[in-house]
Design a protein around this nucleic acid. Structure first.
Lengths: 237, 237
DNA sequence: CCTGGGTGTTAAGGGCGCGTCAAGATCAGC
DNA sequence: GCTGATCTTGACGCGCCCTTAACACCCAGG
């Protein structure tokens, strides 16, 4: 079920949106100001955000750029005023769409469908397999030696981010922001602890990782093919 | 330059759009009806389409679904009427955005930027390859003789700056500022040490650099093609 | 031939990031 | 309220990376 976060301080609008969204099979959560909205995004990770610009505590574009610093999730902006410069500012700050009040619920729902449709471009290979285990992203399962490997929620989130970017290097900041939230970007300890967990559960020899590789000082990389030969020239000094 | 196709049958709107878009550095082509519009999309492959729904020969949603059958290029719909059901139909048919006339040119340009921004997830050329090695900026990976070359964080940052400005000369001050920070602009030693590291790891003959060239007294240059031939004839002065 | 500025090369030491472990805190289920 | 699992937090040792310095080299000019 698609999860929508509505950030708005006007009670009637909030209620109308909630009723309509729930009726169309969305899972709805709400926040009444920008600060709690940002916190809710970091905590709940909704699939799409509907953001009213007329918030009591901060400017709407601040909320947008606060999110865009670490996530690309779709943001649809609502606004009461027709100020064109405000529309331009919000769109350029990173909003995906802009709807002016009063708006028709049918239109908002259609724009919501567009945003969600566009954000789900991953019907490709949900199963990644190494020689020692298989990761099924869609089924959220890891199979090793024919048996399920039990992963805790945090372990799974971390593995999922790495597998989605397989073969690519993912920086520590990016991993921390996507798994723990943007305010944890300096807690490098978490990464080391949970990478150790994953390696103990997945690697044939946890002390010599073949799949979950460390790039010292930068981040981590998940790789399925073992094309890690020793360079012929060597690094000998 | 971003290429925009405008499909509209009203001459004044067409002219206004063309003038504004060209003024903002877009490359503009036009079509006056749905059939020629579809033909133009197939032939020219524009980066984004602006489509007026009020076409003489066919319904706008037919044009949209005709495109969506084989391409995901961004489509922004223009319409004179406020009919909500029409908006919903166009958006559900696959349009990315819907702007109602009369519209402000600033808003349309902002929505155009959003569409282009979203359709171009690869703004930089991530892979640069020489004859002896390959640099993959997106994956943060260097491959030489089929094997990964291990680079330390500083080595990678330095290489990244040089590759981003490939073929261009980068001054020492600029390199120092981008890798070590603006307060290190006089530490010329660092540069020489790390250039030596990179050359030892990447160059076939580190003492005779072919890719990481020194411009004495100014800075360094990364070059992939060795088209720096000396004139064969003897026209020396 | 000598001199000096800019460059290339190498080596050594100190600091820091990484892996590891374990105990306390927090949460979920019964 | 208890119990087990999970998350958080701190400490510690090792290896590697950055820094730094010393020296050889090339070239231009005196």
């Amino acid at each position: 079920m698609t999860r929508v976060l509505v950030i708005d301080d006007e009670e009637p609008i909030l209620r109308a949106l909630r009723i309509n969204l729930v009726a169309h099979k969305y899972e709805v959560s709400t926040a009444a100001d920008g600060a709690s909205g940002l916190a809710a995004i970091a905590r709940d990770r909704p699939d799409v955000v509907i953001l009213d610009l007329g918030l009591p505590d901060m400017d709407g574009t601040e909320v947008i750029s606060g999110v865009r610093g670490w996530s690309a999730l779709p943001i649809i902006v609502l606004s009461a005023w027709g100020q064109e410069s405000q529309k331009v500012a919000a769109l350029d700050a990173g909003a995906d769409d802009y709807v002016t009040k009063p708006f028709g619920m049918g239109e908002l729902l259609a724009r919501l469908r567009v945003a969600v449709r566009r954000a789900a471009p991953a019907p490709d290979e949900p199963v990644v397999t190494g020689k020692d285990f298989t990761v099924d992203l869609a089924a959220k399962r890891v199979i090793r030696d024919g048996a399920d490997v039990r992963l805790t929620p945090t372990e799974w989130q971390l593995l999922e981010v790495l597998v989605r970017h397989r073969e690519k290097l993912v920086t520590q900041r990016q991993l921390l922001a996507e798994v723990w939230g943007p305010e944890y970007q300096s807690e490098g300890n978490y990464l080391r602890v949970y990478m150790a967990h994953l390696r103990r559960k997945l690697e044939p020899d946890p002390s010599k990782p073949r799949y979950l590789l460390t790039e010292p000082g930068i981040g981590y990389r998940f790789t399925a093919n073992e094309s890690v030969a020793s360079p012929p020239g060597g690094l000998s000094s």
